[in-house]
Computed example of a mutant assay.
Amino acid sequence: MAIEIFLKNEHCEWLDVIAPTAEDLKFIHERYSINHLLLEDTIDANHLPKFEKVDDVLFFLMRENTELERKNLNSISDVSTKLGIFIFDKTIISIHRMNNKSVQETRLEVNKKAETITKEDIALILALKVMKSYDDEASHLMDSLEHLEDEIFLKNTSNTNQIRRLYRLKRRTGLNMRILNMSSDWIDKFKILDLEDSETVDLKDKYKDVIADFDHLNAQVTTLISMFLALSDQKANQVMKLLAIFSVYFLPITFIAGVYGMNFEIMPELHLQHGYYYVLGLMLLIEIVIFLYMRKKKW
């Protein structure tokens, strides 16, 4: 069975369940009388963050950012993993589908004060750890963004891989923002727990900081994508400008060469002794005039 008792004292009991099976959920339902629909929510990989209260059971469904690098970024499960927390009586139960960094860090922290810790304290620490995972993600994405900026503007390199990396940053930022925006509900519900106001304020402040970081990051990524596309257009325009300059120089002399290349039996200047040199001189004169004109116009 995947159920493990992490802590037990006179104030509370903390049970942790990892990758629960149907039998595990049935056991929890029968043992603690938790609504089976709430238990089913904990195994739905793409379930959104929420808070529910059924009878005397408080259910917090959080989503922690995951450090796993996924090829596809199509859903919130590609950037996060669920953490369900049930609070009732003197018991707190945490349920998650994979090894959870927040749970392990919280376990180490509460073991240092195992005799006095309460279920509300454990829930608050878990919530803060979940928010910290997004704080770490924001820092990681910002470092990646700054590295891309250096490549594009300082090293002056441009390739298709850069726009793909920018797109992935945009997708990761957007998915994390979606999760955070929907997490405001369960964040607000911490005020109903038996906690000090200052403790719940710390959680809300951390949440606001993370939201602000991702707002800034999203704006930075959007701006960088626009600048990257503008820079690509500028380089394309420079190429077109160079081709246009070549066209201006060669079009007149190509026209002259085309005229004198026509195969008519009777043509003016056809039998001139120095006609070849006259035509070359005319071509050179035209090129000089074009060059002086462009220089005067500062083209």
Rank of each mutant, 00 (worst) to 15 (best):
L15S: 07
D16G: 07
D16K: 09
I18T: 14
I18S: 06
A19D: 15
A19G: 10
E23N: 11
D24Y: 06
K26Q: 14
K26N: 15
K26R: 14
K26H: 14
F27D: 06
I28F: 03
I28C: 01
H29G: 08
H29W: 01
H29M: 03
H29R: 12
R31T: 12
R31M: 02
S33G: 02
I34F: 05
I34P: 02
N35W: 04
H36W: 09
L37M: 11
L38E: 05
L38W: 08
D41S: 06
I43F: 05
D44P: 00
N46L: 13
H47I: 03
H47G: 00
P49N: 09
F51P: 01
F51W: 06
E52F: 04
E52M: 09
K53Y: 00
D55Q: 12
D56M: 00
D56F: 08
D56R: 13
V57W: 05
V57T: 15
L58S: 12
L58V: 04
L58R: 09
F59V: 04
F60S: 03
F60E: 02
M62V: 01
R63D: 07
R63C: 07
N65E: 11
T66Y: 07
E67Y: 04
E67I: 03
L68D: 12
E69V: 11
R70W: 00
K71P: 04
N72S: 12
N72M: 09
L73W: 03
L73P: 02
S75L: 04
D78V: 09
D78R: 02
V79T: 03
T81L: 12
T81G: 10
I85W: 05
F86Y: 14
I87Y: 05
F88L: 12
F88D: 06
K90Y: 08
I92F: 02
I92W: 02
I92Q: 01
I93V: 15
I93Y: 08
I93M: 06
I93L: 10
S94E: 09
H96W: 08
H96E: 09
R97E: 14
R97V: 04
M98F: 11
N99E: 14
N99T: 11
N99K: 12
N99I: 06
N99C: 01
N100S: 11
K101W: 00
S102P: 03
V103E: 02
E105K: 15
E105Y: 13
T106G: 06
R107S: 12
E109M: 11
E109W: 09
V110M: 09
K112H: 10
A114C: 03
E115T: 09
I117K: 05
I117L: 11
I117D: 04
T118G: 02
T118P: 01
K119N: 08
E120V: 05
E120N: 12
D121Y: 13
I122G: 01
